[in-house]
């Protein structure tokens, strides 16, 4: 995936100004910046949910990004396991296995409303890993997790993402270290 000199404005207010980035070959990049700096807009551009005003978002044929949105976006009518299972692609680990990795095995049959905020977050991460997309786009994935858990979850992400490139959006530089990001971009 590549962004070439991308511009995006919201209500005539420039949000992204000539942003360029190449995300391939297992590269891990962290994007940091305060609120309203366009971090989530950048992710939406990369997912093709919005189109840039100018510039290019190039996605190679067969390339499908996987994402942990800023919000969990779980289907409230399905159990945690079913939420993961619905997006699982052939060759991906079983939903139960991913939930076990996320220390959620006992919550597999529970509905999202029966889970704490941190547990829902981990279900969203497990779902992104079940899709096995490349790149893996993570918008504040550790929100609501305590420091110990962050470390363990980061380990699972690195293990399960394999050779996929990672783009991390965060406020916290330590999270970029947890995911061993090689580059840090400040917006």
């Amino acid at each position: 995936m590549e962004l070439k000199n991308v511009y995006f404005s919201y209500e005539n207010e420039p949000v992204i100004n000539g942003f360029s980035l190449k995300l391939e070959g297992g590269r891990r990049v962290a994007v940091m910046g305060g609120s309203g700096k366009g971090k989530t807009t950048l992710l939406r551009l990369m997912l093709g949910l919005i189109a840039p005003d100018s510039g290019e978002v190039i996605i190679d044929a067969g390339e499908r990004p996987s994402v942990v949105f800023q919000e969990d976006r779980l289907l409230s009518w399905f159990t945690a396991e079913r939420n993961v299972e619905e997006v699982r692609r052939e060759g991906s680990p079983e939903a139960r296995e991913l939930l076990r990795d996320m220390e959620l095995e006992e919550a597999a049959n529970k509905l999202p409303k029966e889970l704490s905020g941190g547990m829902q977050r981990r279900v969203a991460i497990a779902r992104a890993l079940a899709f096995r997309g490349d790149p893996l786009l993570l918008d504040e994935p550790f929100k609501g997790l305590d420091p110990d858990l962050r470390e363990r979850v980061a380990g699972v992400i690195l293990k399960r993402a394999g050779n996929a490139s990672i783009l991390l959006i965060t406020h916290d530089e330590r999270e970029a270290e947890l995911l061993r990001c090689e580059e840090l971009i400040r917006l």
Partner: peptide
């Protein structure tokens, strides 16, 4: 709408 976006991104 957020769930619809999620469905789109995950290729439903």
């Amino acid at each position: 709408k957020q769930l619809l976006e999620m469905a789109r991104v995950f290729g439903f």
